Simulated assay, not measured.
Amino acid sequence: MTESNSTQLQPMPTDWQRALAVVAHPDDLEYGCSAAMASWIDEGREIAYVLATRGEAGIDTVAPAECGPLREREQRASAAAVGVSVVEFLDHRDGTIEYGVSLRRDIAAAIRRHRPELVITLNHHTTWDGGVWNTPDHVAVGHATLDAAADAGNRWIFPELTEQGLQPWNGVRWVAVANSKNPTHAVPAEPGLERAVRSLLEHRAYIEALTDEDPETYVRRFLTENTRELSARFGGQPAVVFELFNR
């Protein structure tokens, strides 16, 4: 076992009130960290979701014009299952998101609107743990979110945002990357696990196209196994893990 695989995961910071989660697609957060979202909402914290796309290219048997609205509805219901009421879509094109100035600007604008102390995104590395290749959308949005956390505080990078009434926000203290292959911190999963199951189940159309297994059986097995995977590095507790970057 390497040192990075044996190092104990640290508890996530708790001295914050507002978080913003920025991911590429509907279901990214539900596969990644919704048990943590549920627990944080229980503690009285404010969390908003921003999605780069509506997931319109995500179901092979459903055309994008129909799939986008369907997956948007599923995402809003999914967020509500863990207590999140604010869900925004940036309307980048699913499957072809490009890292660049436009994406950074859109995410920086969202950070300025919501003024979070904690920003959450999904694995930005080119691979998942185990060497499975990541998707370009996840990589682009993850990288852009890390960069936009700084962009949001610099009035000279996107001055047009200030002209639109979005004042600079330099209050982001951390960016937490869910499902990173290099996790450093964790949140106990069990308090929010049942709501995480309900939340992922709201993506029923997507799940039914993905697997022939009973949706609840599939969801419960996936989330249980996923949260137990690194429990040995978190005092034996099932855990939602993050790679935490300080700012």
Rank of each mutant, 00 (worst) to 15 (best):
M1Y: 13
S4W: 14
N5W: 10
S6M: 13
T7V: 05
P11R: 07
W16S: 08
R18A: 09
A21K: 10
A24R: 00
P26F: 01
L29K: 02
E30Y: 09
G32N: 11
C33S: 13
A36K: 10
A36R: 14
W40T: 01
W40G: 00
I41N: 01
I41H: 05
I41Y: 03
D42M: 11
E43F: 01
G44E: 10
A48F: 11
V50S: 06
V50C: 11
A52G: 13
E56R: 00
E56H: 01
I59W: 01
V62D: 06
V62S: 05
E66N: 05
P69W: 02
E72H: 00
E74Q: 07
Q75S: 13
V82R: 08
E88T: 15
F89A: 07
L90T: 11
L90V: 12
D91F: 04
D91E: 15
H92A: 09
R93K: 12
G95V: 09
Y99D: 10
G100D: 05
S102G: 13
S102R: 14
S102Y: 03
S102W: 06
L103I: 00
R105Y: 08
A109V: 07
A110D: 02
I111K: 00
R112C: 11
R112F: 04
R112H: 04
R113W: 12
R115P: 08
P116H: 04
I120H: 03
T121A: 01
T121L: 03
L122D: 00
L122P: 01
N123K: 06
H124P: 15
H125P: 01
G131L: 08
V132W: 03
N134A: 12
N134D: 10
T135P: 00
T135L: 03
T135N: 07
H138F: 02
A140E: 00
A144L: 02
L146V: 09
D147E: 10
D147Q: 03
A148V: 06
A150Q: 06
D151C: 07
A152W: 04
A152P: 13
I157C: 05
F158W: 11
E160V: 04
L161C: 04
T162M: 06
Q164K: 07
W169T: 11
V172K: 08
V172I: 05
R173H: 02
A176Y: 01
A176K: 13
A178G: 11
A178D: 07
N179M: 10
N179W: 03
N179S: 10
K181A: 06
N182M: 09
H185E: 13
H185D: 15
A186F: 04
A186H: 06
A186K: 09
V187D: 01
P191H: 03
P191E: 06
G192Y: 02
G192M: 06
E194Q: 12
A196C: 03
R198W: 00
R198L: 12
H203Q: 10
R204C: 06
A205R: 10
Y206L: 11
I207P: 12
E208T: 10
E208V: 11
D214V: 02
E216H: 05
V219I: 13
R220T: 13
L223G: 13
T224Q: 11
T224D: 15
E225T: 12
N226I: 07
T227E: 08
T227H: 15
R228F: 04
R228Q: 14
E229H: 14
S231R: 15
S231N: 09
Q237T: 07
P238I: 12
V241K: 10
E243H: 14
R247S: 01
R247W: 02
